[in-house]
Nucleic acid binder design. Structure first.
Lengths: 342, 342
DNA sequence: AACGCCTGATCAATCGTTTGCGCAAATGGC
DNA sequence: GCCATTTGCGCAAACGATTGATCAGGCGTT
């Protein structure tokens, strides 16, 4: 095209259109209070088009004191569990004219270099944060919440907006599915005891059992964690029980993969000897053996909601605590669940 | 701490230290040509510390015409295949005082909104790009290469620096492993025919066969793609051959997962009836059933190398074409390979 | 004909940093 | 004790975009 060397500035457009810089700025930014003739507007737009003008990010950010960048910080970017969430946040960001910056939360411990660069230097307008299990909520809230608008997901922090999904309902649906299949002894392979999502999911599991009149058995509930080896450990623990469970609710897909692995290692067929259902859904769930029955959480919508909430906070809105109720958690039946044997 | 309301600026530090703004700037940026007494430096640093000064990103970027942000663009951020690469790029970026921005390449088609926002508005100094299979190299190079420094990985583009890994060697190692186990009929489940990495890996596979004196059989080579269903399709094709292969080299882990799935679907045991080895390694490979034998590529180093190369290009360096030779691809033996039956 | 008012557009200050240049005071040489 | 040099630091002009204030005409009133 007609690239004239470096990058076109406002003044280049102005010169080409034969008007002042401010006129160009007003036309291009669609300033409603601007009084400019339609003829001038046309000329300006044409000139901008011709020189390939794009507003300089730094200049604009400096003047406006906002970058239109939001950061999404999750424990592990490259985990397929976060795929839907990521898309949700990005789609909402784009819809609002923002750019999403993805960062790893391991780099984001308060006071860390990455943290300072992002919020301290004003590179982002705000942050959507999924805290890692085990981070101290208070400390985190203080260090970031005071310096940049913050929305947490899956977890409430004092002083910051938050968005959650119906974890308890999802776990309840998962458990009810097993009960409907005829299971009575159902184990729970949970996240870490300190994890809010794990607690809510455990609560939903307990609700379902209670509703079905099944007696509570503390031995059937484990708190190993959300990763694959944790799922294995949970399963080993559950299968060592004098009375084995005939089914397991895994608190997330990764843990469920571990459950499958351990069952296999102990020579148990799934779902013949053991049914497995996972809360959460992800790409990988369809590709395990057997494919995992899951209860899908509205994580895409969680992302969109969180980004929208952040936008409101950035604009000075009040702290909100939201829960994504639509769509509801939905059971996706694959091949890892069936009626108990015998 | 002592937050004095909004954000501390250079002038705040200057006032507190009793010096001029420029003096502060020079001290804090470590300007070697600055002539300032050690006493003054001390005072400035102390003041900066006390008010919690962080340089304003926009102000600095505007003046310096550089952002110290690089973008990493891959086909799918949330694919575990990219985990090592991502870490490599980020580590190198951090080591160089930069921030890494992660973006999805689906959003990055030339001329797209995301694209303009990133390179057109000067939000990033440069880009590390892994093109999606099927993108037109020439078009891409033109549209981004002319506007921002670019380093591509896995693929060469005209006019831009690039970094690759020894794909052929890796595939060769994988194939040699199977040959050493006694296999003679070995299939190849490749990526798309248009994919440069797939071609190099196929070449390495062919080399190994040739070196072992095994006759070439075009029917044993498939070009379905890198995803799980592609691996399935490849396998179905290979297993439909009049003379079935006893082993398959999968061009990447995702495809290998599909290979395992299809083998299982057809009632074949792995590695009893079919051995499977994948080029590439990833988190997921250890958690398939059976766990996948892989040849690990130096992807972390690829990331670091690419980021370093990009830094040189940003600084006006010449176009380079690099290959990461250290560490070499290494065979990771798990449980999906064994001697052929009978 | 003098007045005020609306239209169309420009002027100039501002955001926070960096950096070439200038200017005092201190230092050194003889 | 005088000049040249060095040391130590501040002034002010950028960088590109935004925006309140301002200004020159043209028009309709009285």
């Amino acid at each position: 095209m007609g690239d004239t060397g470096p990058v076109a500035k406002l003044s280049d457009v102005a010169a080409r259109a034969g008007v002042s810089v401010s006129a160009v700025s007003r036309v291009l930014s669609g300033d409603p209070s601007a009084r400019l003739s339609e003829a001038t507007r046309q000329r300006v737009r044409k000139a901008a088009e011709e020189v390939g003008y794009h507003p300089n990010f730094a200049g604009r950010a400096l003047k406006l004191a906002r970058t239109d960048v939001i950061a999404l910080i999750v424990p592990d970017v490259t985990n397929s569990l976060f795929a839907d969430l990521t898309r949700g946040v990005e789609d909402e960001a784009v819809a609002r004219g923002c750019v999403m910056l993805l960062a790893r939360s391991e780099d984001m411990h308060p006071g860390g270099a990455m943290f300072d660069r992002l919020v301290g230097e004003g590179r982002v307008d705000g942050i959507v944060l999924q805290p890692r299990d085990g981070t101290d909520p208070g400390e985190l809230a203080q260090s970031v919440g005071e310096r940049a608008p913050l929305v947490t997901i899956h977890q409430r922090l004092p002083g910051a907006s938050s968005v959650v999904v119906p974890d308890a309902l999802a776990a309840r649906r998962a458990t009810e599915h097993l009960i409907a299949l005829g299971h009575r002894r159902i184990g729970f392979a949970g996240g870490l005891a300190g994890s809010p999502t794990a607690q809510r999911r455990a609560a939903g599991y307990a609700e379902a059992l209670a509703a079905a009149g099944i007696a509570r058995d503390a031995g059937l509930v484990t708190w190993r964690g959300y990763r694959e080896p944790d799922g294995r450990a949970s399963t080993a623990e559950l299968l060592a029980l004098p009375q084995r469970p005939t089914a397991i609710v895994a608190a997330n897909v990764n843990a469920a993969v571990g459950v499958l692995a351990q069952a296999r290692a102990q020579g148990l067929g799934v779902p013949g000897d053991l049914s497995v259902v996972a809360v959460h859904d992800a790409w990988t769930a369809a590709h395990t053996w057997p494919p995992l029955t899951c209860v899908k959480l509205p994580l895409y919508e969680l992302g969109r909601t969180a980004a929208a909430a952040l936008a409101r906070v950035v604009d000075g809105g009040p702290v909100e605590h939201l829960s994504v109720e639509d769509p509801e958690p939905v059971l996706i039946t694959r091949e890892s669940t069936g009626a108990p044997r015998g």
